[in-house]
């Protein structure tokens, strides 16, 4: 079964294009300098339309998660993490933590993680793995 994938909208296209290009693209306000997520063409902090897209560090920490023991059919058969990372730039983002056992012992809150892009057909999803050094 094919992975459930996003349908980009005009407001989010830059984010998904960035994933394909290997960049985690966030937006920030040029008036109050807040970085925010998910994408929209104005600042949710102050309402300004003066915002810019930039390539974020792709680094963050594991903020919270569950390990789903009843995976959706498109997610395979083994228990897997559904996680939220807190990005260095401030926002939180849902993802899967990959590249480590899917166990409470391996998945410690606050451990540093870094983005890795995994391709599914025409889409690349931003997943995160334990940071390497």
């Amino acid at each position: 079964m094919d992975r459930a994938l996003p349908t980009p909208t005009p407001e989010t296209q830059h984010f998904w294009d960035g994933c394909k290009a290997g960049e985690l693209r966030l937006q920030r306000c040029t008036e109050c300098s807040k970085t925010y997520f998910p994408p929209r063409p104005f600042c949710p902090g102050c309402g300004s339309r003066a915002v810019e897209v930039y390539a974020a560090s792709g680094k963050g920490v594991l903020w919270s998660y569950v390990i789903n023991h009843r995976p959706r059919p498109d997610m395979g058969k083994d228990p897997h993490s559904i996680a939220v990372v807190k990005l260095q730039e401030g926002p939180t983002m849902m993802t899967n933590i990959v590249g480590c056992p899917q166990t409470p012992e391996a998945l410690q809150l606050d451990m540093p993680v870094e983005v890795v892009f995994e391709t599914f057909g025409e889409t690349a999803l931003p997943l995160f793995q334990p940071a390497k050094g």
């Binding site: 992975r3 459930a4 994938l5 996003p6 349908t7 980009p8 909208t9 989010t12 998904w16 997520f37 998910p38 919270s64 998660y65 569950v66 789903n68 009843r70 995976p71 959706r72 498109d74 997610m75 897997h80 559904i82 996680a83 939220v84 983002m93 849902m94 993802t95 899967n96 809150l109 889409t123 999803l125």
Partner: peptide, 26 residues
């Protein structure tokens, strides 16, 4: 799949509430 949730949560395997409502708890 074009809603914000469809784009930024559904691709990671959330199903019903037991895999969403529970995420902040750890």
């Amino acid at each position: 799949p074009a809603s914000l949730m469809g784009q930024f949560e559904m691709p990671y395997g959330v199903t019903s509430p037991p895999t969403m409502f529970t995420i902040p708890v750890l």
